[in-house]
Structures are given as structure tokens and as C-alpha cells.
Write a protein that binds this DNA or RNA. Structure first.
Lengths: 245, 245
DNA sequence: ACAAAAGTGTTAATTCTACACCCATGA
DNA sequence: TCATGGGTGTAGAATTAACACTTTTGT
């Protein structure tokens, strides 16, 4: 049996990219544009998440991985399936209906949503065929379908998860400074954190390893570089059962 | 358009029920039984989760609610969509193939899995048409399809969630004793908790309200009864941003 | 020398952990 | 009266929270 598309099931990917220099948590979206036949009228002009249908011989994870690769060329990034969206009317706004007519899309498509974590600069948007573009997660453009809601739910999941799992390092380069980690937490959570307390806490973790290196090419005092060791983390980690309701 | 079944999308429900008297966290599953035409051979004899296909005019949440109601008669129970399962081979074990032949089932069905929280005694299994049965979550029977994995992932999600959200009370009667809450936490998490510390912690919460009532009909010293106030919880609750990685 | 970001210590408050016995009740 | 589970207190340890100035470096 040849692999075929499952036309009513798709995977949509919320690609989070952190821009270290602007300290901005971004989402990668692609352009959706359609003119009337006479080109007199712009029918659709907004953005959507990248996504695609599932093939009959693929796992859902495979689909997500494939979709990310096709958009960014990247593989092996952190990914998480966080929610399925299947409301009967999730694709039925006027613009969406116009768009669906031009695509091989079932009107009642259920999508399995994933999010990915990576660094903005890992993605080369120059020769991108989908007119992909980064937007700060707190300044999203007009989005088609129910994709704004999908992004917001992904963001909520990320906020919670970054407090209890070491996924923050997926958004940072291999070598980072303590202040960079703090800035990232502040960007994601929208809070400010005391620098001394944060430093102490982080540096005391056995899996935060100080390198024999400092920043280079910075115009002020270069900071100490650290790395995160997954190996040490897995060894040291122990579940805590602290009830905090 | 008449509502029709979407044959390749289903919702499966992990129904968790807590049995206060035996202090057991149980899962409700239904019998799957099939004999050969000559009745000489038992082809399938195991259990599966309750589930059903999604109708074209339903949300996924609606489907889950409907499935629970059909099995138990209950509505308004706590429910959570926790994961979608869509591996191409998730229904392709030999027994599953035999079963599917007798059902209107697509071989490549993706299921959106939910779990429900309720009390075992709320469900009347006497006049149940599906031969539904409770099993302790740590002593599950042989399960068809990928349903054992689904249950285990639901259980993991529940373990995590009960530490940070007040869902524990969904598994308890409206009026409960502190020790009943402690027993339940211990059952779910598989740990032992110090009674004095636990009591103090819980009683100090403003949303744990001491009633002017004690247990009745118990054969020993009757315990103080409490209730959980969602109203107070929502008012008092404030997100904490404690980074515990 | 100066601008900018890196880096540093202390104290009080809170929360968590460990631990063992008395009490009230119904049988 | 006795068996059973309900209920209680304290002290040490660990963690968190609050708070402001000095140091280092490149320009």
C-alpha cells in the first residue's frame, strides 16, 4: 500500500525560537495570501502555523518532525505534542473557507498540535519558499484558522513546563551565561527575577557546568560561560512529590 | 448535513475512579470478547478502554462527554484531554485485527485520549451493557490495542497534575476527612506522607473548610469533615513562578 | 575615566522534614 | 476497658525572598 495522505488529520507546529540578542521569544509562521482571479481584490492576507497532513505510514511524531524539517531544514530539535484541536468549526471562518477551496483540505480536519524549541538564528529565512517569518509571541499578527489559540495554548504549556523541566536550555546556545538564562526566563514568564538569588540557585546545580571560557567580542566585561549537562541532570534528578496546591 | 461518524478519529476515555473504602485508584474498562463461528475457540478475550468515534458535528470534548455518559450515565465530571495516539500500527496486533473486522473501525484510527476523575461508587455497574469493570491502576488486566500505554500515560499526567492543581478533590466525596485526602495522595503517588505535616499543610489552606460535622457510622472515633471550596481557591490562588529544575 | 554589564553577601521569613505519643470514640 | 484510628507540637534544616553596591572590562 502506497502511503497516502490522511485528509482529515493534520499536524500543526508551533515553532518557538528565542532570539538571544533581542531577548525575544518568537513564533515562526508562514504567509497566507490569495487574490481574486482578476487580482483586483486581496482575499486572504494573513499568517498561519506550518503544518501538514499525516501520511498513512507515519506516526504523528514523524509528521511533526517532517514538517519542521521541510520548513527549517532542522532535525533533532526538542518537540512536544501538547494538544489536539478538533472543533467542527475550527476552519470555518470566511477567509478560511476561501483558502480551503484552494487547498486539499477537509473542512473537518482535526489537528494534532506540537511545539518545537530552538534558536531563532538556527533558521535561515533567506531562501525560504513559504515566506516564513518570526513574530514575538506577545505581538502576533493576524492568524488564520484557530492558530492564535493554538499558539497561546502552546505558550501556556511552555510556561508551565519550563519551571519543572530543563527545557530552557533548548532555547539557548550550547554555551551561555547565567544572565542569558535569567533573561530567557523573564521573557517567557513575563516576570522579573532577582539576579543574585537566581545566580546562586543556578550555579549550585551540579548540571550547570562552568567552562574555562568567557564571552568574546562583547563590548563590555565578558561574562563566564556555562553549559548544561543532560547526563549529569539525568543522574542527579529525583522526582519530588511536593504538593503545592 | 446529517452528522456522520468520522471513522478514523476516535476518543478514548481513561475513567479513573477512586474507591474510598479500599483506598484504590481504579480504571474502568470494558470487556472485549469474541468466539469463532463454531464457538469452539475464543478469539479475543480481554479488556479495552471505552471510546467511540467522533461525529462530524461534535467537538472532541463533546465526544468524550458523550462516551462517559453512555458508559456511566454521569455528566459534569472532571475531564482532561491529555494526548493523541496515532501510530500507524497501534491497532494492528493479531487480536486487534480480528476485532476490527467485526467493527466499523478504520485500521488507521487516531484517538484523542481523555481521562476522567470520579468516585467508583458513583458508577452503577449492575445494569451495564458493556460488561464494564474496575481494575486497580497498578493491577490492570490484559488490554487490547495500545490501551495499556494510554492508561499509563494518563496516570503519569494525573500524578503530575495532582501536585499542582486541586484535582484531588474530584476523586473524593464532597465531605471528606484529612486522612482520606492523605490516603488518596499516597495511593496515586505511591509514597507515604507524614500525617502531621500533611494535616498542618492542608488545614492551613483557606479553601479547605472545616464543617460542623463529623463522620457518622464509623466504628471508631469519628473524624472531622472538611470540604474544598473552588470559589475560595480561585480567589486565593496565585501562580507561583518557582523554578524547580 | 567612564559607561555598561558582571558579579557578589547577609539576614529574615517561610517552608519543609523528622519524629512519638495521647485522645476520643464505639464496640 | 480496649482496640482503633484521630489528632496534636516542636525544633532543626533547607529554601526562598528581599535588598545595593563593587568590580571588571572595553571603549
Amino acid at each position: 500500500m502506497k502511503p497516502e495522505l490522511i485528509l482529515n488529520i493534520s499536524v500543526d507546529c508551533v515553532v518557538f525560537g528565542y532570539d538571544l540578542s533581542t531577548k525575544s521569544l518568537n513564533v515562526l509562521v508562514i504567509k497566507r495570501f490569495l487574490e481574486s482571479e482578476t487580482k483586483k481584490e486581496v482575499l486572504v492576507d494573513d499568517y498561519v502555523l506550518t503544518g501538514y497532513h499525516v501520511y498513512t505510514n507515519e506516526t504523528l511524531d514523524d509528521t511533526a518532525t517532517r514538517v519542521l524539517k521541510e520548513l527549517t531544514g532542522l532535525t533533532g530539535q526538542y518537540k512536544k505534542q501538547f494538544k489536539a484541536f478538533g472543533d467542527p468549526d475550527r476552519l470555518l471562518n470566511p477567509k478560511d473557507l476561501i483558502w480551503i477551496k484552494n487547498a486539499e483540505f477537509h473542512e473537518r480536519t482535526t489537528t494534532i498540535a506540537y511545539y518545537f524549541l530552538l534558536k531563532t538564528e538556527e533558521v535561515d529565512l533567506k531562501n525560504n519558499t513559504s515566506q516564513a517569518q518570526w513574530f514575538p509571541v506577545d505581538a502576533l499578527p493576524e492568524l488564520g484558522f484557530d492558530h492564535k489559540q493554538i499558539i497561546l495554548e502552546a505558550y501556556e504549556d511552555l510556561k508551565g513546563k519550563c519551571l519543572s523541566e530543563p527545557i530552557i536550555f533548548e532555547l539557548l546556545p550550547e554555551k551561555f551565561t547565567i544572565n542569558e538564562v535569567q533573561d530567557l526566563y523573564q521573557s517567557i514568564l513575563g516576570i522579573t527575577i532577582d539576579n543574585r538569588n537566581f545566580r546562586r540557585k543556578l550555579i549550585n546545580k551540579k548540571y550547570i557546568i562552568a567552562l574555562d571560557e568567557k564571552q568574546v567580542g562583547v563590548s563590555k566585561k565578558p561574562a563566564q560561560l556555562y553549559m548544561f549537562s543532560k547526563e549529569v541532570y539525568d543522574k542527579v534528578f529525583q522526582k519530588n512529590y511536593l504538593i503545592s496546591i
